[in-house]
């Protein structure tokens, strides 16, 4: 037996594979919203022509990629970890001879892998069949797209991790969570493309990790912007945020160990 982390990736995958009905229900919702969003954008662009470089095929591709990626990056935390902190079950996680943050990331990558199969591909296929679609022009884009998704999952994981880990200090994290719930869809580029934002807002967001969660993978796929810059941005934030998670966990564990649960 060796290397627990690859095995945790597999476990994360298999874990979600056991909930087929939930996956199907979520998929249905994704698809319905996808049709609505695509219809709205097509209606707008039919009158406006191209907006900030988005013609109809690009906008439709943006919508379906976004719908598919939504459950892959999993924008909103499941809060399982904060429940484990509150219930004290976290002492089991802390007592294991592993890097807990890395273990949770590995499991989350497995979950994302499963979501790619059941939640990303089906809505994409529907989008391709029913709407004009913009395929990557260069073959290497497919590979870069995959890399950008992995980085998107890492960035999203770290944000979810930190939101959950507030439970070490706060009895009730609803405030923080509702703020994230309200703004996350906007700042990651789920609601409208970030390119449609005012210049100043785009400039501000470029300094945050949020675009890396959704807009960047979509831009990589639709071949907009400098791919090196997009992936570099995501990679730097992945490393920084992962380190921040580890620091936060260390502080949380210390608080637990010193003050008691």
């Amino acid at each position: 037996m060796s290397a627990p982390y690859p095995q945790l990736v597999r476990a994360g995958f298999r874990r979600y594979a056991s909930y087929r009905q939930a996956a199907f229900a979520g998929l249905t919702a994704n698809v319905v919203f996808g049709f609505l969003r695509a219809a709205v954008l097509v209606a707008v662009l039919a009158q406006q022509g191209t907006v900030a470089g988005y013609d109809i095929p690009t906008a439709v591709t943006y919508v379906w990629l976004g719908q598919g990626l939504l459950s892959v990056v999993q924008l909103w935390p499941e809060l399982e970890f904060s429940k484990r902190i509150r219930s004290g079950d976290v002492v089991i996680d802390l007592g294991r001879p592993w890097d807990l943050t890395a273990a949770m990331l590995a499991t989350d990558l497995g979950r994302a892998g499963h979501a790619m199969v059941v939640r990303f591909i089906p809505p994409m296929l529907l989008g391709i069949v029913f709407f004009p679609f913009r395929w990557p022009q260069r073959p290497v884009t497919w590979l870069l797209f995959l890399v950008s998704i992995v980085l998107a999952v890492v960035v999203s994981f770290t944000i979810r991790f930190m939101l959950s880990a507030t439970a070490f200090w706060m009895l009730d994290a609803h405030g923080v969570l509702s703020v994230w719930g309200a703004v996350s869809g906007i700042v990651v580029g789920l609601i409208v493309p970030l390119a449609w934002f005012p210049q100043w807002a785009q400039a501000v967001l470029a300094w945050t990790p949020f675009p890396a969660i959704m807009q960047s993978p979509i831009d990589v796929f639709t071949e907009r912007g400098d791919v090196v810059a997009l992936l570099g941005h995501a990679a730097i934030w992945s490393v920084l945020l992962f380190a921040a998670c580890k620091l936060m966990l260390r502080a949380g564990a210390k608080k637990l160990v010193v003050q008691g649960g």
Binding site: M1, R14, D89
Partner: peptide, 29 residues
């Protein structure tokens, strides 16, 4: 460590896979 009121097994996975993960985490030959 065994806590009667807490679980160290993976809730959604078959028991056997929890054992495999334990083996891997502890690097048991």
């Amino acid at each position: 460590v065994v806590f009667g009121q807490r679980s160290q097994l993976w809730w959604d996975l078959p028991l056997e896979e929890s054992f495999d993960l334990h083996g891997a985490i502890h690097k048991v030959p």
